Simulated assay, not measured.
Amino acid sequence: MLTFRRSLFAALLLITFVVVLRSSHSIPSSSSPPAPAHRPEDDAHNSNQVTDERSPGQKKNAIQHQRSLNPSPSAPLRERLRYHFPYDLDNKFPAYIWQTWKYTPDSLWFGEELRPAEASWTELHPGFVHQVIPDDTQRSLIKYLYSALPEVFEAYDSMPLPVLKADFFRYLILLARGGIYSDIDTSALKPAADWLPASYDLSTIGFVIGIEADPDRPDWHDWYSRRIQFCQWTIQSKPGHPILRDIVAYITEETLRMKKAKILKVGKMDKTIVEFTGPGAWTDAIFRYFNDPDYFNIGPDSSHNVTYEDFTNQKEWRKVGDVVVLPITSFSPGVMQMGAGDYDDPMAFVKHDFEGTWKTDPSL
């Protein structure tokens, strides 16, 4: 006869059996090894959909970044800049246009003589975000973008001249956000989409620069800082590019060095503006990149360095790794020297009025 105790005992046995049965299905067999962890490298190895046209040095650099952890505050500045502003060559050029001036275009104090030039960038780039950053906003923007790198903001904030901050700002904003920077006294002659030939694969290009000066004359050093000088009034870049990382680190280190030595003052600095933040320092950073074995296939026995001779008398585009160098006509048309064409030249993209507004700064 089925009693209450027997019924309860039978129910407990049934529950125990069900629990044991379920547990046996949830535990993998000791003879079956667990599935291997997924690795990003596996996707690259198994996929044949994408062709990576970067140089081995660039691939190595990208992989090292992917595997890197957040560096400590004591790590070298370049390493921390690499972490906070990673460079991805495959990304598109951001649709930003950055300019700086004392006032925004909607201010009554914005000079009427600047309006046609400023408007040309918006008119030829209708899908872009066009920002004219006034002086009183730059400081807050840099403090926000570089909050994790306090020495960069300290360097910017410590500079004794507006022209130094203006130079530094263009590198800082492009490193963090990418896009196009162009001085307020420049006019767009052609949209950025026409700056490069249609045959170029944009996934292999991360930086576009123009030649400012190619003075093939014995006294060139009396007029320019370098035999080939790259212009800094118009630059296009994808965010995080190594050239920008290098120039930002260089300027930061030099600024803090002079500050510590108590010579970061007008008339006391041991560097000129050109060599500190201007075209001299800028040109040097570009050549350092072109000759960096971390990014280019430079063998230990190679005797060739990229020098001014590789760009003198250049008439068309020249691609060096992920950088496209434009001839002097592109960003300096109409100068009537050094082989530059006129404003109607097919290679003329940006007109620079050479106003030199920084020279009117009363603190200079």
Rank of each mutant, 00 (worst) to 15 (best):
T3Q: 11
T3S: 15
R5P: 05
A10C: 12
L12Y: 10
L12G: 04
L13P: 12
L14Q: 06
T16R: 12
T16C: 15
S26V: 07
P28G: 10
P34E: 05
A35T: 12
R39L: 05
P40E: 09
P40Y: 09
H45P: 00
D52I: 03
D52R: 06
N61K: 14
L69P: 00
L77T: 14
R78A: 12
R82P: 04
Y83L: 07
H84R: 10
Y87A: 12
N91Y: 01
N91P: 07
P94V: 03
P94F: 13
A95W: 01
K102W: 03
Y103V: 00
S107N: 14
A117S: 13
T122Q: 12
V129N: 14
Q131R: 03
D135E: 12
D135K: 07
R139D: 00
S140R: 06
K143D: 03
K143R: 13
Y144S: 14
Y146A: 05
A148E: 11
A148P: 01
E151A: 02
F153R: 07
F153D: 10
D157A: 15
D157T: 06
S158R: 08
S158P: 07
P160E: 05
P160N: 02
P162T: 08
L164V: 12
K165Q: 07
F168N: 13
R170V: 03
Y171D: 11
G178K: 07
I184Y: 04
K190W: 00
A193C: 10
A193K: 08
W195N: 03
L196V: 10
S199H: 03
I209R: 00
G210C: 00
D214F: 03
R217E: 09
R217F: 13
W220E: 07
D222P: 00
D222S: 02
W233I: 02
W233G: 03
D246S: 14
I251W: 11
T255A: 06
T255V: 05
R257Q: 08
R257Y: 03
K262Q: 11
K262V: 00
V266Q: 05
V274W: 04
T277L: 10
G280A: 04
I286A: 07
I286Y: 10
R288N: 14
Y295A: 01
Y295W: 11
G299L: 13
N305K: 15
E309T: 12
V323C: 12
I328T: 03
T329Q: 05
F331E: 00
M336R: 15
M338E: 06
M338Q: 12
G341I: 02
G341Y: 10
Y343H: 01
A348I: 05
V350D: 01
K351N: 04
H352V: 02
D353V: 02
